[in-house]
Amino acid sequence: MSVFPAEIESDRLRYERLHPDEIGPFELYRHVKRGAPHIEEITEYVTWEPYDHPKQAADWVTQCGDQFEKGADATYVIRPKEGERAGEFAGLAGLHPDWDRKIATLGTWLRKPFWGRGYSGERAGRMLELAFDRLDLEVVTVSHDPENDPSRRAIEKYVERFGGRKEGHIRNDLVIDGEPRDSVRYSISRAEWEQNTT
């Protein structure tokens, strides 16, 4: 039994674990393959590239399922709960703990039709609640490429809302398209979270 819940909900979204028992690789592959709608924009600032074949999706779903079961990592499929796109694959949300340091890192990506709806902040709030209330972690971090203005705006908004802070500009922290890239890192502590959610 994993320490992570298999399914979570927030106001408008449902999060299902990315696991072979729940998600078929072709559902993921359809949205992440080379040539998928808006895939170049989606992957411009992330550390993975569009997939070339469905085995990559199958391997990723299996890897995420294994990590979930071991309590090492939680990756969730994001789906809207209502509206014309209810139940659709909107993207992925990740919570990546380092248990020894009592810290976790947030990660997410969304398909372009789901940009600009406040889903990133809603997802962050739910993942912070999971990290602090269920998993007893002390700090949650999140980073973005300095040139990724939409991510910066979304992150700054929820970091401020939950009382966190900008940690700084970290040089050569990411590798995107085989090239080292800088990142901007933020953090929210459990004390900051509690002070701003009660």
Score class of each variant (00 low, 15 high):
residue 3 V to P: 01
residue 3 V to G: 07
residue 5 P to W: 07
residue 5 P to N: 08
residue 7 E to T: 14
residue 8 I to P: 02
residue 10 S to D: 07
residue 13 L to A: 09
residue 14 R to C: 11
residue 15 Y to T: 03
residue 15 Y to D: 02
residue 16 E to A: 12
residue 16 E to Q: 14
residue 18 L to Y: 07
residue 19 H to D: 14
residue 20 P to C: 10
residue 21 D to V: 06
residue 21 D to F: 08
residue 22 E to N: 12
residue 22 E to A: 13
residue 23 I to H: 10
residue 27 E to F: 06
residue 28 L to G: 03
residue 28 L to M: 15
residue 30 R to N: 10
residue 31 H to F: 14
residue 33 K to D: 04
residue 34 R to P: 00
residue 34 R to S: 13
residue 36 A to L: 11
residue 37 P to V: 10
residue 38 H to R: 14
residue 40 E to N: 12
residue 40 E to K: 13
residue 44 E to V: 00
residue 46 V to S: 10
residue 49 E to A: 15
residue 50 P to A: 11
residue 50 P to H: 12
residue 51 Y to R: 05
residue 51 Y to L: 04
residue 52 D to L: 12
residue 56 Q to Y: 04
residue 56 Q to N: 05
residue 56 Q to L: 10
residue 56 Q to E: 15
residue 58 A to T: 05
residue 59 D to G: 09
residue 60 W to E: 11
residue 61 V to I: 14
residue 61 V to N: 07
residue 63 Q to V: 03
residue 66 D to E: 14
residue 67 Q to L: 13
residue 68 F to C: 08
residue 69 E to I: 12
residue 70 K to A: 15
residue 72 A to C: 03
residue 76 Y to K: 04
residue 77 V to S: 09
residue 78 I to Q: 03
residue 78 I to V: 15
residue 79 R to S: 13
residue 79 R to E: 06
residue 81 K to F: 05
residue 82 E to P: 01
residue 82 E to A: 15
residue 83 G to I: 10
residue 84 E to L: 08
residue 85 R to C: 00
residue 86 A to C: 05
residue 87 G to V: 08
residue 88 E to A: 13
residue 89 F to G: 00
residue 90 A to D: 02
residue 92 L to W: 02
residue 95 L to Q: 02
residue 96 H to L: 06
residue 96 H to M: 04
residue 96 H to T: 00
residue 97 P to W: 06
residue 97 P to D: 04
residue 98 D to Y: 10
residue 98 D to Q: 10
residue 100 D to Q: 11
residue 101 R to F: 09
residue 103 I to P: 01
residue 107 G to C: 02
residue 108 T to W: 14
residue 109 W to G: 00
residue 110 L to I: 00
residue 113 P to R: 10
residue 116 G to M: 06
residue 117 R to T: 09
residue 118 G to W: 11
residue 119 Y to A: 06
residue 119 Y to M: 13
residue 122 E to I: 11
residue 123 R to N: 13
residue 127 M to E: 07
residue 129 E to H: 14
residue 130 L to M: 13
residue 134 R to S: 15
residue 135 L to F: 05
residue 136 D to N: 15
residue 137 L to H: 08
residue 139 V to R: 15
residue 140 V to W: 08
residue 141 T to E: 13
residue 143 S to N: 11
residue 145 D to E: 11
residue 146 P to F: 07
residue 147 E to H: 08
residue 147 E to K: 11
residue 147 E to N: 08
residue 148 N to G: 03
residue 150 P to Q: 05
residue 151 S to M: 06
residue 152 R to L: 02
residue 153 R to L: 04
residue 153 R to I: 00
residue 153 R to M: 00
residue 153 R to Q: 08
residue 154 A to H: 01
residue 154 A to M: 03
residue 155 I to L: 06
residue 160 E to P: 00
residue 160 E to L: 07
residue 164 G to Y: 05
residue 166 K to W: 05
residue 166 K to I: 01
residue 169 H to C: 00
residue 170 I to M: 12
residue 170 I to V: 12
residue 174 L to C: 01
residue 176 I to P: 04
residue 178 G to P: 01
residue 178 G to Q: 09
residue 180 P to L: 09
residue 183 S to E: 07
residue 185 R to Y: 03
residue 185 R to P: 00
residue 185 R to E: 09
residue 187 S to C: 11
residue 190 R to L: 00
residue 191 A to Y: 03
residue 192 E to W: 02
residue 196 N to Q: 09
residue 196 N to C: 01
residue 198 T to R: 14
